[in-house]
């Protein structure tokens, strides 16, 4: 893996007129909620235009899930991702399915707990132990989506830590704000440790 500076990665997302993000995995991993929180953080607290869409199967649990967040300084016509700048994959299946939609200079984040890529589709590929951190450090496996959001915030800067936390407070189910915020913190910590 090539060595990247955090600064360089963050610069990729600065002053970009359109950023396309895809969060993908399985139903039940909370990716749609994560995409909504991301949209709130960017749309309400970063003052950018945002569109969030999702694709899911007819069943409520299981099956492949993807959520797209398109962020723009200007107007968003086509609301879905075309070539993504940032791809989060939480299952092997999602990686296989969506790695080809990544831009060559795009960033891949994968959950080392579920995904063990033999080859990396782009040079800026980063594995984090997302679900294990949620289970063992935060104490609740279902907060993996929030750990992922913390990572996205710290790694790319497309939403500030402050904006993200505000959005989490607004959107997290009542009574779960604290544990979700802790999960975000742990995600941020994972990035800080990686780029010490």
């Amino acid at each position: 893996m090539a060595d990247f500076k955090l600064e360089d990665i963050r610069n990729l997302f600065k002053n970009k007129s359109r950023i396309e993000v895809r969060l993908s995995g399985a139903g039940g991993q909370g990716l749609i909620l994560a995409s909504v929180i991301m949209a709130e953080a960017v749309g309400l607290f970063e003052g950018k235009n945002v569109a969030q869409t999702q694709a899911y199967g007819p069943e409520a649990r299981g099956g492949a899930t993807r959520a797209d967040v398109v962020i723009s300084e200007g107007e968003i016509y086509y609301p879905k991702a075309t070539k993504v700048d940032l791809l989060l994959v939480m299952t092997e299946e999602a990686l296989t399915k969506y790695k080809h939609v990544l831009k060559p200079e795009g960033v891949l984040i994968y959950d080392e707990f579920y995904v063990h890529p033999k080859t990396l589709p782009v040079s800026r590929s980063f594995g984090f132990d997302i679900t294990r951190t949620a289970r063992d450090v935060v104490g609740k496996m279902v907060t993996a989506n929030m750990v992922a959001l913390g990572i996205i915030s710290a790694l790319t800067g497309i939403m500030s830590e402050e904006a993200l936390k505000k959005a989490v407070e607004r959107k997290a189910p009542e009574g779960t704000e604290e544990i979700n915020l802790k999960a975000v913190e742990e995600g941020i910590k994972l990035v800080k440790e990686r780029f010490k």
Partner: peptide, 9 residues
Amino acid sequence: EVIGHMRER
């Protein structure tokens, strides 16, 4: 489905 489920700012 796109317009109904899509979220926008």
